[in-house]
Design a protein around this nucleic acid. Structure first.
Lengths: 195, 195
DNA sequence: ACTAAAATATACCGATTGGTATTTTATTAT
DNA sequence: ATAATAAAATACCAATCGGTATATTTTAGT
């Protein structure tokens, strides 16, 4: 790994939480230099512009979440247990133990849907990928007779994502873990009702 | 209504959609003057600062949603039908027929939770009020034997809000009304399963 | 119609915005 | 160790940021 690559990663690591908290417009180049300790010249030596940093930061934040989920999901055998993984992983993003501004999908979707095309397309891809992933799990669950065949995999996927993301919005706003717990209890019931 | 009050309302009406789309940091005073056709001096003659405009814009956006919901809810008699009102109202915010950037609660919560205390407190109040409203409806439903008494009103309220707001995030991002429809079908099932 | 007050426009402020050309420093291959 | 190269720092740019003091216009009461 060359020096430039190291610096690039360093910049992304340090700015990713800021973009996740403050959003694209709310994060200034001064924020970026302050967080990295680097100068503007150095930032622009590694990135073409602010957009490129923001896009890389989103990728980083997304991978941070999804890799944790993948790792935990691989430990589970049943489809339902795999689906329940989201609850435990996101809990850590709520209670502050991992938190860096909440779910990057939610933050970036709301931040960019009307303002930033490139960022919007990245989140869109992430959500559609997430949806497909859950839908395939549901299909596998149906094949394995673990989930009733009368369920629409896409609908189940969208419903799970909606509950999680809506739950994050509420819980992070109210800062009540009890709210998260209650919503996730509903999600558990929903998942267990699938078959 | 004095001239200043008219102008104040005019500024709020014109800028409310902008704040809802671009967020607080993303909306500049240039945006505000461009949308109103007024000059900076006129804006600052009616508002102390940008914050005051943003706060008034949020109030306006929130009232726009909640008054529509209240009006429609009063037409319904059963508790379940009252709860189902959210689906039809928010549909209009999704398909673009009323849209001005989506749900102000979701937008402002995500925008302000880590950045803007005053705005954050306003959304927090809105969400807690919304939660209490649904919880009281559920309690009334239990009293009327329309909803089973084993349901936790607060939990039902939080779950409904989460599905709606999560559904808005997804549907506005993907611009697929089918996604909204599928998620709302799940919400209908959930509401109907209450009793 | 006239005047006092209210509301809006003009013209400006310093600070910050994203971005760049140039110089200095650090790295790396020989 | 040195030269070539890569990376980072410095110093700057025009434009825009939120905000204000003052001048002008518009409104409203008599």
């Amino acid at each position: 790994m060359t020096k430039a690559e190291k610096t690039r990663n360093f910049i992304v690591e340090k700015t990713a939480p800021i973009f996740n908290m403050k959003g694209y417009a709310g994060t200034s180049l001064n924020d970026i230099t302050a967080a990295t300790g680097l100068t503007k010249g150095s930032i622009y030596g590694n990135f073409a512009n602010k957009d490129e940093v923001a896009l890389a930061a989103f990728d980083y934040n997304l991978k941070n979440v999804s890799s944790r989920i993948d790792a935990e999901m691989n430990k589970q055998v049943s489809i339902k247990d795999k689906l329940l993984v989201y609850i435990n992983i996101y809990q850590k993003f709520i209670d502050g133990s991992v938190s860096e501004g909440g779910c990057p999908v939610l933050n970036t979707a709301v931040d960019a849907d009307d303002t930033h095309t490139e960022l919007r397309e990245k989140v869109l891809k992430a959500v559609l990928g997430w949806k497909n992933k859950i839908a395939k799990l549901v299909e596998a669950g149906i094949s394995a007779k673990e989930i009733n065949a009368d369920h629409n995999p896409e609908q189940v996927a969208l419903t799970i994502i909606a509950i999680i993301e809506g739950g994050i919005m509420i819980s992070r706003l109210t800062t009540k873990t009890s709210h998260w717990d209650l919503i996730m209890e509903s999600l558990k019931k929903y998942i267990n009702s699938l078959g």
